[in-house]
Nucleic acid binder design. Structure first.
Lengths: 237, 237
DNA sequence: CGTATGATTGAAGGGTCTCAAAATAGGTGG
DNA sequence: CCACCTATTTTGAGACCCTTCAATCATACG
């Protein structure tokens, strides 16, 4: 099922069988993209939105001197550009990190879906606000944490999110990024990201190698990241 | 009219007279808060959302050591916690900066409003995504710009937003913040914010004194801020 | 086996922070 | 209207974190 991970661990249970079926059937096609492909270019009008079924996708903005800032990272079950439905065009770019599979939801179909199923409409809205909540936490991370806190927080968040969709235990998970990507997510240089990773490794907190994260001391990780998963709005609390 | 500034300059023209009237009548009361009052505490379940009619409001998150990070600043015409409608509880705090007037929209009324007026519903959704777009730009600002760029960008954004709701020409506007608040918005210390303000003043770019911003060289301001207003989704482009 | 890409390390410089003090502004009571 | 008190702004000096630039090492791939 294409949408089986949508809102998994995030109040998916608030959706009825009828609504889940309607959502599943609203996808008109599935597309596969290769690694490091641009899925959406900023400014372009879009007429469909994509649900990530498999793989990892990131959103980013470019500065004047070729410097790049990641503003979001998406895991399976996330809509990557549902905000493009009300916004019509995006203010940033979207690209795949590895080979990905996405389900396409035409905007006219979404319009009808929302009118026919108001509660589903509100949950779609809710899912875009989860992105906003993560944006806020990223603002906090960049504004208040040092380099190691930022990296630790990033790992903690992705681990928890993968756990919510059943793809990790929260400590062991794939993360197909280069160190330079991690740096672009954390607002630091690639060189310093490397030094931070060494520090975290030597303190036996977390290792990141070959696109795979292994958390060995999650208490310490959460502590230096000042991490609390409340902003992810998990179902249980 | 309470909602006369809602989406002003941001495709408000996509709303019909009927929809505008319905929105205006959905407010069940108006509340006045004093300066520096907490309007919403994170974690609390909320059952209404507030449209800012007059004054300035900020949203923020607190770190472990009493350090605070602003994640949003609101001007008249903004819903300050419409995201609380789908989210039910907030992940951050909201407080007034000066005396403010807000219009209250009970969530049950919003539910009905959206079912009766799907297009209005989509514009309400749209307005929460504008916040998300600003969040992303703040991430970029914190991740990629130095201290003076961050401060310049903050001034540029608020000026442009006040201009869109008819409260400024973009160069001259009230901004009731202390330098320490500005610092908390830009992820720097209050001491350094002071030095940055001196630098911007001495370069004849912008002055900030007594809660008032005066931009003297908007080209230079936008340049060092790498500012482009596209992410604010203005009506005209 | 050679080449390209990414990871790792070193050294030096710069931007921002911390700590501390002084100056200014705003508000209050005499 | 002045004197006082408090909050805020301003300035200085030193330390630290991170960046920059450069080189070396490891790894994957043709």
């Amino acid at each position: 099922m294409l949408s089986s991970r949508f809102l998994m661990g995030r109040h998916r249970e608030d959706l009825s069988e009828i609504e889940l079926t309607a959502l599943e059937q609203a996808a008109d096609s599935v597309t596969t993209y290769g690694a490091r492909e641009e899925l959406v270019h900023h400014g372009t009008e879009i007429n469909h939105s994509m649900l990530l079924v498999e793989g990892f996708v990131c959103r980013y903005m470019d500065g004047l001197e070729g410097d790049r800032q990641l503003v979001a990272l998406h895991v399976p079950g996330d809509f990557v550009d549902l905000h493009g439905f009300p916004l019509r065009r995006l203010d940033h770019d979207i690209a795949s990190l590895i080979e990905v599979k996405v389900a396409n939801y035409p905007h006219p179909v979404l319009s009808k879906l929302i009118i026919d199923h108001p509660n589903l409409g509100r949950m779609l809205w809710f899912s875009t606000l989860l992105d906003a909540a993560m944006h806020r936490e990223w603002i906090f991370r960049l504004g208040r944490l040092g380099a190691s806190g930022r990296v630790a927080h990033f790992f903690a968040e992705i681990g928890r999110r993968l756990q919510m969709v059943g793809l990790s235990d929260g400590c062991n998970f794939p993360l197909p990024l280069h160190q330079s990507d991690l740096a672009e997510a954390c607002g630091i240089t690639a060189v310093h990201a490397n030094r931070v990773l060494r520090e975290l490794r030597e303190r036996n907190i977390v290792t990141f190698k070959g696109g795979h994260v292994n958390v060995t001391d999650i208490r310490a990780l959460h502590s230096i990241a000042e991490f609390d998963d409340g902003y992810l709005y998990p179902s249980a609390h």
